[in-house]
């Protein structure tokens, strides 16, 4: 039991975040400019719109053993391309059910809205995801298979 706890506390999740260029990526930049400190476990891929992120990329990331995938876009109603984030919202909703069906914890996929002015929120979202995924433990899906 003791051992187990130690392993848990040392576990650092590996997280991929897709950030849309206009809101979330700008928010991440603002977090940097503001020097908001945050956990080091998230790696960002910039896309122009969160709606560019297809299920294949998310599933591949998780199937390859990443512990979590975040999709970060503009708030509803604020998409630079008018409604790309609505497609993202539907897609993530359905994909979570699919993940659950194939045996990947749906919590490993997280959708959050971060605007260009929300540097502090970006930092908070990163921290929240890191905490959640640390608590959830390593992605064992590959082993299970």
């Amino acid at each position: 039991m003791q051992d187990n706890k130690e392993v848990q506390s040392e576990f650092k999740p590996k997280i991929l975040a897709f950030c849309c260029n206009w809101c979330a990526y700008a928010g991440a930049d603002l977090a940097g400019v503001s020097r908001f400190q945050m956990p080091t476990d998230v790696r960002v891929i910039r896309v122009m719109c969160s709606g560019r992120v297809p299920p294949e990329l998310i599933i591949r990331a998780l199937a390859n053993g990443l512990d979590g995938v975040m999709v970060l876009g503009c708030h509803p109603g604020e998409c630079h391309y008018s409604d790309g984030n609505y497609l993202t919202r539907r897609r993530v909703h359905i994909l979570k059910r699919l993940l659950s069906y194939i045996g990947i914890e749906p919590e490993r996929l997280q959708l959050r809205w971060v605007s260009a002015s929300e540097g502090a929120k970006f930092a908070a979202v990163v921290k929240e995801a890191t905490d959640k995924l640390t608590a959830l433990g390593p992605n064992r899906w590959v082993d299970k298979k």
Binding site: I45, M48, C49, R60, R91
Partner: peptide, 26 residues
């Protein structure tokens, strides 16, 4: 406008957003 929604939606990978292709992101 280069949002890439079509690329994400295409079931065959026939539409590709330049600079953000499936291959590049994958």
């Amino acid at each position: 406008k280069g949002c890439g929604l079509c690329t994400a939606a295409c079931p065959n990978g026939a539409v590709q957003q330049r600079g953000f292709t499936d291959m590049q992101l994958m």
